[in-house]
């Protein structure tokens, strides 16, 4: 049974369509990514799945419970972290966790043990007495994740989980998520705008302007671009570019000091360039297209269009 089933979800803010019939399924024990630029509707979708926003059309099932008819059933299954931290800055780390435990009906020694466990797991035990507002961004995020693991949810919903994390902390966080999935079969749904994070997902759904424009594993998505990507480092890229056009009728893309070519059968081209233009390049690299290329191909927009979606939660929805 799929852990999350999103079926023909539509959502409007007045006349503006935020989601236009989105459907996908997340099997149990999978890390699934929702990738999309600003205004793609991914935060709206996230809010609908996490029971914070009423469904206007379509249906969502989480852990076998229907989001609109049994929100509490869903809430018991899910651990949610939001883009903006939900910690109370005036409480200590431990107090925040105790508070969270009480909200989930945990108390006494059971709660104490759970708190110790998640604090150890996320390496925040030595900060238990610190006020949450005094913590760095990375530590806050860890407490946030500890908080959402406290009630042993079987499904994690993470909205831009690496916001404010440096690469090291981001790497640690993903190690934690991957071990949760591997060892405990936890299903994880993340929204992200970082290609590096998207690569870590087993499957991805790409949202753009409220529509699901692609869904599949990173490899499957890359195949949509087709061909290979050849990167050539050269001392004189302009000259090389002209030579490539003359000899092979190739259009190359200048990226910094390098040239990039997207082409079927890249390995043949690689051999041709290597044998016919020796001395014109310093290195030839053949690779599969990146998710970045996929995104550009599907949306017609570059990566600069993908920024962190501003949390819409501060606005009122009617």
């Amino acid at each position: 049974m799929a852990a999350v089933v999103v079926n023909q979800i539509e959502h409007r803010y007045g006349d503006r369509v935020a989601l236009a019939g989105v459907s996908f399924e997340v099997p149990q024990g999978e890390i699934f990514g929702l990738l999309g630029p600003n205004g793609s509707g991914k935060t709206t979708l996230f809010r609908i799945i996490s029971t914070l926003m009423p469904i206007q059309a379509g249906s969502v099932t989480v852990g076998g419970h229907d989001v609109s008819s049994d929100p509490d059933g869903v809430r018991r299954q899910i651990g949610v972290t939001f883009q903006s931290p939900s910690l109370d800055g005036k409480l200590t780390v431990r107090e925040n966790l105790v508070h969270q435990g009480h909200l989930y009906g945990l108390s006494g020694t059971g709660l104490k043990d759970r708190i110790q466990l998640v604090m150890d797991q996320l390496g925040i035990t030595d900060r238990a007495r610190d006020y949450a507002e005094k913590l760095s961004g990375g530590l806050k995020r860890r407490v946030e994740i500890a908080k959402c693991l406290l009630h042993s949810p079987s499904i994690l919903l993470l909205d831009e989980p690496s916001t404010g994390l440096d690469p090291g902390a981001r790497h640690e966080m993903w190690k934690t998520l991957e071990s949760l999935r591997r060892e405990h079969g936890v299903t994880i749904l993340v929204t992200t705008h970082l290609m590096e994070e998207a690569e870590r997902c087993a499957r991805l759904a790409i949202l753009d302007l409220g529509k699901l424009i692609a869904c599949g594993s990173p490899d499957q998505l890359r195949e949509m671009v087709g061909g290979d990507s050849l990167t050539i480092q050269a001392d004189d890229p302009d000259r090389l570019s002209l030579l490539l056009t003359e000899k092979f009728q190739l259009q190359s893309q200048r990226v910094g000091a390098a040239l990039r070519i997207e082409q079927e059968n890249g390995h043949e081209l690689l051999t041709n360039i290597a044998t016919q233009l020796p001395g014109e390049f310093r290195s030839l690299t053949l690779g599969k297209p990146t998710l970045e290329d996929v995104f550009i191909k599907l949306t017609g927009r570059g990566l600069e269009a993908i920024e962190s979606e501003t949390p819409q939660g501060k606005k009122k929805k009617h």
Binding site: G105, Q121, G123, S152, A169, E172, L180, E183, H184
Partner: peptide, 19 residues
């Protein structure tokens, strides 16, 4: 400080008692 000590501290997935 490591964020995670692999497998030494397992998160139990059993349902917690809701009072």
């Amino acid at each position: 400080m490591s964020m995670m000590q692999p497998s030494t501290t397992a998160i139990s997935t059993e349902r917690v008692q809701t009072g």
